[in-house]
Design a protein around this nucleic acid. Structure first.
Lengths: 247, 247
DNA sequence: TAACAGAGTTTCATGCAGTGAAACGTATCT
DNA sequence: AGATACGTTTCACTGCATGAAACTCTGTTA
């Protein structure tokens, strides 16, 4: 159970400090110290280091910190030409134009999912999806897809993780996932956030491995359950086409 | 001269390791160790920490490292609504449509410049500009703008920095900057990279402070010196309009 | 105007945690 | 088999990260 960790404490702490900036824009020193549960002077030193390397900057007027330019520099090199989020973008735009709703691409990361790409609907009322967002794997159409079609063992591992919501009925949820495997797609109606709905289908690469979930989402009054089932074939087809490009 | 550093060594090293990924896609452990000049086992521990926090991931097939999803997560929160790179984007697109060439936005960071925003030309032959790129402040039209119009003292500080190329004739360069202040814009013809040319104008916020350089760049056979001078008024006007939005 | 509260900053003794040489495992060559 | 190159693990040493406390500098209260 002890799981030896071969990591560097100071670095771990610094990265924790940095990750504060993933939610919310700017923070003061004491705020951050409270958030990560470290002493003021420790955080002060860590921030000085992060600042020196350009990972955070200070607002001159108020003394608060915000993300620095090094992060921008790194993010520029995030997407490579063999990256799904780049390769699949044209197909995602096609699907967006076809259905006129926001299209997102999700991958699973341990017990969460991450939106690695998104193209927005052009309609006045639209689902706005930010790339990079990290979301729970327990709710939402694409969550269910990422779990339902995952390799053997993943489903069990994830659901027995400490982060998994206890209140969820495993029996029923498992049944739901089996249904999704049978039909080939998942839907969610005001599941994660009120007023929003989504349809999602799995993308398998040429070796048949699940790599991502393709999801179409929009306001729940436009994406009614009926409408979502109408959309499903187009999404499944697009996801299939995308899969042939990968690997 | 001694400049006490109140930073954490382990964190500095870890960030150095991370910044390897700003240039080039993926690296092996030994490669990185050589690059940052640290012992293999040290880098191994640092990478393990970075991996644990999701800042790097390993390619399963080859054992190389690449940037992880945490960087994506951070970069999602980089741009705020009051950020020049967001606010000025529509104006940049207008200018791109007007001139049909790639438009970039640069800010100065110490003795370098960073491209914080870019919109690409739609032409078949075009300048491709990646956001986040860090470039020298000694060459290029926008470099000269950022230096020429900088606050008092900046010019001297930068040119006496250790990173400043010694071979450059200070006298002549200073003269060139003065000319740029007089005319209000700068040009560069195959200065930084062969085959490329650019025109750049300063953006001042409402308090009259230089905040960025607006630059139009393209292939040098299309952006001839004559053509660039024709472009200048439109660029200056756009830069002025942008300035009124800021601060 | 002094006293206070709340930020960020600096100092410094303490001991633990980061370090790197060396040994190890494991592939892919010749 | 030997050789090379890579990632991994161990371990003794001591340098460096740590956090309590003192300090500064605001703006706010009495």
């Amino acid at each position: 159970m002890e799981e030896e960790k071969r990591t560097v404490r100071a670095v771990e702490r610094a990265l924790d400090v940095l990750m504060c900036f993933a939610s919310g824009h700017e923070w003061g020193l004491t705020e951050i110290a409270g958030r990560v549960g470290l002493h003021k002077s420790t955080v002060h030193r860590l921030l000085a280091t992060l600042e020196d390397k350009g990972f955070v900057t200070r607002i001159t007027s108020t003394d608060k910190y915000r993300l620095g330019l090094s992060v921008l520099e790194l993010s520029a090199n995030l997407s490579r030409s063999d990256d799904p989020s780049v390769v699949l973008l044209p197909e995602m735009e096609r699907l967006r134009d076809q259905l006129s709703e926001t299209v997102s691409l999700y991958i699973r990361d341990r017990v969460e999912r991450v939106r690695i790409q998104a193209v927005q609907s052009m309609q006045a009322i639209r689902r706005v999806a930010t790339v990079g967002a990290r979301l729970p794997l327990s709710v939402g159409a694409s969550s269910k897809v990422l779990l339902a079609f995952a390799e053997a063992g993943v489903r069990g591992n994830v659901m027995s993780d400490t982060a998994w919501p206890v209140h969820l009925d495993r029996e029923a949820f498992g049944k739901q996932l089996d249904d999704i495997v049978a039909t080939g797609y998942a839907t969610s109606y005001e599941e994660r956030e009120p007023g929003a709905a989504a349809v999602s289908a799995p993308i398998f690469n040429r070796s048949g491995k699940l790599v991502a979930a393709l999801s179409v989402s929009g306001p729940s009054n436009r994406l009614t359950p009926d409408r979502m089932h109408e959309f499903a074939p187009a999404i499944i087809e697009a996801a299939h086409r995308m899969g042939t490009i990968l690997e």
